[in-house]
Design a binder for these strands. Structure first.
Lengths: 220, 220
DNA sequence: TATTTTTTTTAGATTAGCCTAAAAATTTAT
DNA sequence: ATAAATTTTTAGGCTAATCTAAAAAAAATA
């Protein structure tokens, strides 16, 4: 079992590798992210290397082993599920949840994670739009994008929803939109970010930014 | 800001004082509860005493200062709110939640606690029936008891519900029971713990143990 | 390429939280 | 009331996670 500190190191190494798109992370980059001294980072990298979670070569840099990466993804999964819970159910604004999720992500219980995932309806993206890996560590980026990110005047089909709460599904029902309906954006309103769409080449309706953000579409 | 370990000590001291109904807790009792060596407990008591959270006299025992007690109650509040969440929303059974709540109770965020409380509908008791202190540290024991703990053939009135979820309120509506209705238990079924009650001296119905456990009544 | 600058590591120290073994105080029993 | 038993504390040690200062290696520059 890893400590919260070790988990954090793995998570940040994972994110830096991803963000910077490099082979290895440098000691100083990690030190900056974690707000630790470089000396502390060196110590920790040696320890994680001994535990076979990190590949580390002096003066060169660090990357993750297979086990290290899997662990990092688990932590990220927990972080993003908790953020989703905080925003959706506890009505936190998206900018305030990070610090709390940073603590919640280290609570140890596999069953808790899976039940939370189920409670939330297996969301694929968190409130910041970052993908939530599923229990096998698989990220659903792929073809699906939020309707808010779709281009004007191109054809998409509704592939899923992010917030599968009853309220949202009832809403979709009310405006008579179903899975696999064809959707084309014809206008984006500057002032409130609402979008006007044409559904199945027939109906034209305007929906809010938050509704559009909950709808996953793929190009046709 | 206190560490998780310090918070735990305060919580257990509070509970031991309460359970044993004594002036002070003894080193060995705490050591046994916490599964620490007595030496460790002595060290910790000295530290908490320096921080003015505990009143400690060598060889005599420890009790809580005002601040220490307030802190202990806050931790207990968080613990019980999380247990309630785990059972009600994540469908854990009551016997599996303790270990997880033990971790969740140390997450630091006042706003989180208050929002969680609100999300749960300000429950007064946790799934084990223990009282959840409110945000001012006030415990609602008092006159109210769960209907499951009410005596046969005595008159009570419905004073509140513990799980204020829509589903339960809808259920109460369906069986036509309202706040302040007069309730008298006429039979308790051994085999499934269901109870048969007379409502307002007219209707006789049988409700499940879990429904009865959700109903708070007071004597009239 | 030699020198300077930057980055990284090593060395040594500190605090929190734990332990065991030995000593001291208190309680119990004869 | 003394001796024995029990409880509690003290003393000394260990690991994890942090730090600063100094040394070493790598990178940049002139």
């Amino acid at each position: 079992m890893l400590t919260a500190v070790e988990e954090n190191y793995l998570k940040y190494i994972f994110q830096l590798l991803d963000d910077l798109d490099t082979e290895t992370v440098k000691t100083n980059d990690l030190a900056y992210k974690l707000e630790h001294s470089p000396a502390t980072v060196t110590d920790m990298l040696k320890k994680l290397s001994d535990k076979k979670l990190v590949q580390y070569k002096k003066y060169y840099g660090a990357s993750l082993t297979k086990v290290g990466r899997q662990t990092a993804i688990k932590v990220l999964r927990k972080h993003r599920l908790w953020e989703t819970f905080l925003v959706r159910n506890l009505k936190f604004t998206w900018d305030k949840v990070h610090e709390i999720a940073e603590q919640l992500e280290h609570v140890q219980s596999d069953e808790l994670v899976e039940r939370l995932d189920e409670f939330l309806g297996f969301p694929k993206f968190d409130p910041h739009g970052d993908p939530i890996p599923d229990k096998h560590g698989y990220f659903h980026f792929a073809q699906q994008i939020a309707l808010t990110d779709a281009k004007l005047k191109e054809n998409y089909i509704l592939a899923g929803v992010n917030d599968a709460s009853t309220a949202f599904l009832v809403y979709l029902n009310k405006i008579k939109i179903q899975l696999n309906d064809k959707i084309r954006i014809i206008e984006k309103e500057e002032f409130d970010d609402s979008v006007t769409i044409v559904v199945n080449d027939r109906k034209t309706i305007t929906i809010s930014h938050s509704a559009a953000g909950n709808m996953w579409v793929k190009k046709v």
